[in-house]
Design a protein around this nucleic acid. Structure first.
Length: 512
RNA sequence: GAGGCUGUAGCUCAGUCGGUAGAGCAACGGACUUUUAAUCCGUAGGUCUCGGGUUCGAGCCCCGACAGCCUCACCA
């Protein structure tokens, strides 16, 4: 004889671990079906978000009477409401069941009493598991202990969960599992869902900021015949019908500039780029880049815009300007500091920016191989080693040595200086901007120079002849800006790794 | 690419000197009509990541592989 209540005994073969947990849930699914209820639910209209329901607490009316003698609590009348959510906690207490359900606005307690609901609902309640999604109709009141609670009058089954959820309070802690099973992470890790939603708010705010300044959003191609616009190794793919190899884009730049030529005077794209490089706390092979071009602007125009984008994003997410990040505090109160490259170089190395012997001596002392390197290259290596990490910021570093910025317009009256800035925060490069080079002959010369002697995949910029043709038709003088959106979101959400702000970061495939 | 750390039940974690596998949550059975990490009694659940080796004996020691994390390197 089999024990009908024990799913274990129904199968000949022995169930192990998770199989047993799943069998128990499938058994309940079967029982729900047997009650004539669809275990996968259907349209459910008219419910309020749990956040909105919690806001109705003030509508609960408490009768003044009560009975002090018998300890009977004062009678309450609350609004009748309908809610829906996933069962997150469940406490059975005899003929009572307390449950906490969650939606994306919050969590609230349910009270289900055997004598307070229909017989069928009580039976249904016996077949509920953690993780199931239900809807309820009921009255919003407080329990004796003051917990805001929906006293359920009618239950609606909306979706069965076949898998066991993680431990109810610790949730998922293994970073690998949190990334692979982001859906569980969003449900069970405090702050995970909030961070994901905050990211969309930040992105929305950026679009609003740009729209207010008459910028137009476009969508450039992600499949490129020539992967240009940045120095990075591309992913290679193949188009079958055309029988050509294509590259996933590594930057947005060259097509946006073509649009500048085409007369879209304020243009931007906020989209994914792909770089076939290493993975670490600040790099994911696909990441989100914002590139903005403004005709008749220059790098100073872009500096103001950068600051505005960030400040408005902070305001849009309802945050103060002083934000915790890891164990430091970053002060985004505008205006951000603005310092020249040379100024910072001298400040952090103790060597004047034009003191060539001093710079070479310092490089020697640190042990940098100099060989025949140009003084600006040596200087920049020192800058990256000594200055960048020390830049807590936010600080705009501007006026770079021209020789290390070949694709940037020179400063009027000082050809040794390139009109470029980078925004640094906590040693991290957050934005990079130029007064764009629009001289087609110079651009072609620089392309060629960079290609010489470099393996193609390492070349800084690939010769894009159509882009040069576009420049020859005339690109208005312009400011151009690139912002790493993932890094910005990291800073504005307190995340110290890029994988916390990318919902599905690249991982090696799960082994079966 | 180099080094370090980690991998034990569905989840979170213990596991001593090398002696044959433990807890909490989740699950199953039972008690309980205002609980809230509910509580109490009972039951079941294991390819100790994988493959070798040493040993009478390996979760533990050695070698290798796989995966993740950290540091460094690389990185418009």
């Amino acid at each position: 004889m089999t024990e009908p209540n024990d799913p274990l005994e129904n199968d000949q073969e022995r169930l192990v671990g998770g199989e047993m947990l799943e069998a128990s849930r499938r058994e309940k699914l079967r029982k729900i079906e047997a009650m004539g209820i669809d275990p996968w639910g259907s349209r459910f209209d008219g419910h309020l978000s749990i956040g909105a329901i919690r806001a109705k607490q003030s509508e609960i009316v408490v009768e003044p009477a009560g009975d002090c003698a018998t300890g009977t609590p004062p009678e309450q009348h609350g609004p009748k409401i309908r809610a829906a959510g996933r069962i997150f906690l469940r406490r059975k207490k005899g003929k009572l069941i307390f449950m906490d359900i969650r939606d994306w606005t919050g969590q609230i307690q349910l009270f289900v009493g055997k004598n307070q609901v229909r017989e069928q609902d009580w039976e249904l309640a016996q077949h509920l598991d953690l993780g199931d999604i239900i809807g309820v109709d009921g009255e919003l009141r407080n329990t004796r202990t003051g917990e805001l609670t929906i006293f359920v009058e009618q239950l609606h089954f909306l979706c069965k969960s076949i898998e066991t959820p993680p431990a109810k309070h610790k949730g998922l802690t293994d970073p690998e599992l949190r990334q692979r099973r982001r859906y569980l992470d969003l449900i069970h890790t405090d702050g995970s869902l909030e961070r994901a939603l905050k990211r969309t708010k930040i992105v929305q705010s950026i679009r609003n900021t740009l729209a207010r300044q008459d910028f137009v959003e476009v969508e450039g191609p992600t499949l490129h015949a020539i992967a240009g616009g940045a120095a990075a190794r591309p992913f290679i793919t193949h188009h079958n019908a055309l029988d050509i190899d294509l590259f996933l884009r590594i930057a947005l730049e060259l097509h946006l500039k073509r649009l500048l030529v085409g007369g879209i005077e304020r243009v931007y794209e906020l989209g994914r780029v792909y770089r076939n490089e290493g993975i670490d706390a600040r790099h994911n092979p696909e990441f989100t880049m914002l590139e903005i071009y403004q005709a008749y602007g220059n790098y100073e125009t872009m500096m103001d815009l950068t600051e505005r984008i960030i400040v408005e994003a902070i305001e849009a997410t309802g945050q103060p300007f002083k934000l915790a990040w890891g164990d430091v505090e970053i002060d985004f109160t505008p205006p951000f500091q603005r310092k020249t490259y040379n100024e910072l170089f001298a400040e952090h190395t103790g060597v004047a920016a034009d003191d060539e012997p001093g710079i070479r001596a310092l490089a020697e002392q640190i042990g940098f191989a100099q060989r025949n390197k140009h003084i600006d290259v040596v200087k920049n290596e020192l800058f990256e080693a000594k200055v960048e990490d020390a830049l807590k910021g936010p600080v705009f570093v501007y006026d770079y040595p021209a020789s290390i910025c070949p694709l940037t317009k020179r400063k009027a009256g000082d050809p040794a200086i390139a009109e470029r800035f980078e925004l640094f925060i906590e040693g991290m490069e957050l934005a990079n901007a130029y007064t764009e080079l629009n001289n087609p002959d110079l651009q072609e010369e620089l392309f060629s120079r960079q290609l010489d002697g470099l393996p193609e995949e390492e070349s800084m910029a690939k010769m894009d002849r159509d882009f040069l043709r576009a420049l020859r038709h005339g690109m208005p003088p312009a400011g151009g800006l690139g912002v790493g959106i993932d890094r910005l979101v990291m800073l504005l959400t307190g995340a110290t790794t890029i994988r916390e702000v990318i919902l599905f970061p690249l991982l090696r495939p799960e082994v079966e």
